[in-house]
Design a protein around this nucleic acid. Structure first.
Length: 340
DNA sequence: TCTGGGGTCCTAGGACCC
DNA sequence: TCTGGGGTCCTAGGACCC
């Protein structure tokens, strides 16, 4: 009996949920992001396939999206609705009796045994569609990494299998940032070392890369390019290591009294959430993003672990006091690192 | 391209200790 | 007193992902 990993990924999730409750939007370019006003600061969370045809994608500033696709329907992010839809999908996946590892709102891994993973994948897609009205794609792999990457080839609304045998034929000539964990910056660093493709990275010397990119990162990158991944699919959700809140202001704050007030407010909000989850903060980190987008952080260790609002507020304000710059601020954040 | 908000993990450098 | 080397811990920053 063969063991398989399936990676399930909902297609254009946020946009698809919005179309479900407003069927008249079907077939239109739909862009979900920020508070739905493309004139404001914010980015695209999800664009429907119709909107993607205009070059709109996740992470694109809303203003730019509006310029590229002026006829799009812009909608605000509605967390609760997506969380509910996501929960329904995950419940459906659990009806298979396999281990399900949730990876966020719209993704999950499943560990499946047998000789017909494609049949299981199609059955998953059928049940999800029936229960929720949502389409998903399924990647099949002999480990999590290959299953995850397979999904990119399965989309939209399909199934794709990627194994050790087909790895290099499928991905060998692709740029290194096709891999899960390599982004633009790392791809450019690798490029400067003469490594441009997945195959090139796979053929690199792990020790050489360790010396240049770090003792853990170097060898890990080579393993990644070879498709190696021995991490298990785990159903046990792991406890959060940190909890935070941050806000980008529509207009920069230049009054430092207001900055202090906002940091205190964010700290109290984090404290509320910690108390509700019965977790304690060990350290508080304040983040300040100045108007030209330079970001600085300062941390403050707590005398004892706590979820008390007054203590978190005091620590956050202490940390804020250690910032030297008094330039206009576009974002403030407070994050609690939790006691293990 | 005027760039969200929620996270996680790794690295470099300094402090400190023997 | 111009001074080594190794280990460990902490902090700030960076990269990445959804």
């Amino acid at each position: 009996m063969t063991s398989w990993v399936l990676h399930i990924d909902l297609d254009q999730f946020l946009a698809a949920v919005e179309v479900l409750r407003r069927p008249e939007l079907r077939g239109l370019p739909v862009i979900v992001g920020g508070d739905g006003d493309p004139a404001k600061r914010g980015v695209v969370s999800t664009a429907s396939y119709e909107a993607r045809a205009y070059g709109v994608h996740s992470g694109l500033p809303l203003r730019t999206a509006a310029r590229r696709c002026p006829d799009a329907v812009f909608l605000p992010v509605d967390r609760e609705v997506y969380e509910a839809a996501s929960a329904e999908v995950m419940t459906t996946l659990r009806t298979f009796g396999a281990v399900v590892e949730v990876l966020g709102w719209d993704e999950a891994f499943m560990a499946v045994d047998g000789d017909a993973p494609e049949a299981v994948a199609e059955e998953i897609r059928r049940r999800v569609r029936e229960a929720t009205g949502l389409d998903c794609s399924v990647g099949i792999g002999d480990n999590k990494l290959r299953a995850k990457l397979a999904t990119g080839f399965a989309k939209p609304d399909g199934v794709f299998r990627l194994t050790a045998e087909t790895w290099f034929a499928t991905l060998g000539d692709r740029p290194t940032d096709a891999l899960w964990g390599i982004g633009r910056k790392t791809a450019r660093r690798l490029g400067r070392l003469g490594i441009d493709t997945v195959r090139g990275l796979a053929d690199s010397d792990p020790d050489e890369l360790a010396a240049r990119l770090g003792p853990v990162t170097g060898p890990w990158l080579v393993r990644l390019a070879r498709g190696g991944d021995s991490s298990p699919v785990t159903g046990t959700p792991h406890a959060a290591r940190s909890r935070g809140r941050e806000t980008t202001y529509q207009h920069d704050l230049d009054d430092w009294d207001e900055v202090r007030e906002e940091v205190a407010r964010l700290a109290r909000r984090v404290a509320e959430e910690l108390a509700a989850e019965r977790r304690l903060a060990a350290r508080v980190v304040v983040k300040v993003r100045y108007a030209p987008f330079t970001t600085r952080t300062r941390g403050q260790v707590l005398d004892e672990a706590t979820a008390e609002a007054a203590a978190l507020e005091r620590a956050a304000l202490d940390a804020l006091g250690r910032f030297t710059g008094r330039r206009p601020v576009r974002l403030l954040g407070v994050r609690a690192e939790l006691e293990r």
